[in-house]
Amino acid sequence: MISSKQRSYLRGLANTIQPIFQVGKNDMEETFMKQVDDALKARELIKITVLETSDYSAREASDLLCKKLKCEGVQAIGRKFVLYRRSKDKAKIELP
């Protein structure tokens, strides 16, 4: 669990990154979750967009991915959300 100060720091970092995935109508399948898991291992902090055709809101998609992948939901605004998981191998982001 990350603190509010750490969450604020991660939100600041997330402002500059572009979304790398999109959640569409039926995109919350195992292959999608595997790709998100791999991206979290490599980058630690990722941004995802939820398309209007999706059955999920940004908060619902974030909560579902966090539960399955054991990551932290940093932020969910509009149709975008940010996920964070500290890498076990090579931590790139130092939290305050």
Rank of each mutant, 00 (worst) to 15 (best):
K92C: 03
E29D: 15
K5G: 08
Y84P: 01
R7K: 01
L13N: 00
E94P: 00
S4H: 14
R79L: 08
Y9H: 05
L83D: 01
I17F: 02
K5T: 11
F21M: 07
N15L: 14
I17P: 03
D38F: 08
M28T: 04
I93S: 01
K47R: 14
R79D: 11
I93T: 01
K34S: 10
D38R: 14
Q18F: 12
Q6I: 09
K90M: 07
F21E: 05
L64T: 06
K41I: 10
S87C: 10
V82P: 02
D55V: 12
L69P: 01
Y84I: 02
L40K: 00
T31K: 14
V82R: 06
S4K: 15
L69E: 00
R79V: 06
A76Y: 05
K90E: 07
L10H: 02
K90D: 10
N15R: 07
K47Y: 11
A91Q: 11
S62Y: 05
D27M: 12
I20N: 07
L45D: 00
I93K: 03
S62E: 13
T31N: 08
C66S: 05
G73I: 01
F32E: 03
V50K: 03
L45E: 02
R86H: 06
V23M: 09
D27C: 10
L95F: 00
G24A: 14
P96M: 05
D63N: 12
L40T: 00
A42P: 04
L95A: 04
Q6T: 15
I20Q: 14
P96E: 07
K5M: 14
K41Y: 07
N15G: 04
V82G: 03
R59C: 07
K41R: 14
R79H: 11
L83H: 01
S3H: 11
F32D: 01
K5C: 09
E60T: 05
R43E: 01
K88M: 07
S62F: 06
P96Q: 09
Y56L: 11
S3M: 14
K88A: 06
S57I: 05
D55A: 13
R85N: 05
E60K: 11
V23A: 10
Q22Y: 12
I77W: 07
Q18Y: 14
N15Q: 15
I77F: 08
K88W: 06
S62D: 09
A61T: 05
E72F: 10
L51A: 12
E60W: 10
A58Q: 13
V74I: 15
K47W: 08
D89V: 06
F21C: 08
R11S: 15
C66F: 07
F81Q: 10
K41F: 11
V82M: 09
E52Y: 09
M33C: 09
I77A: 09
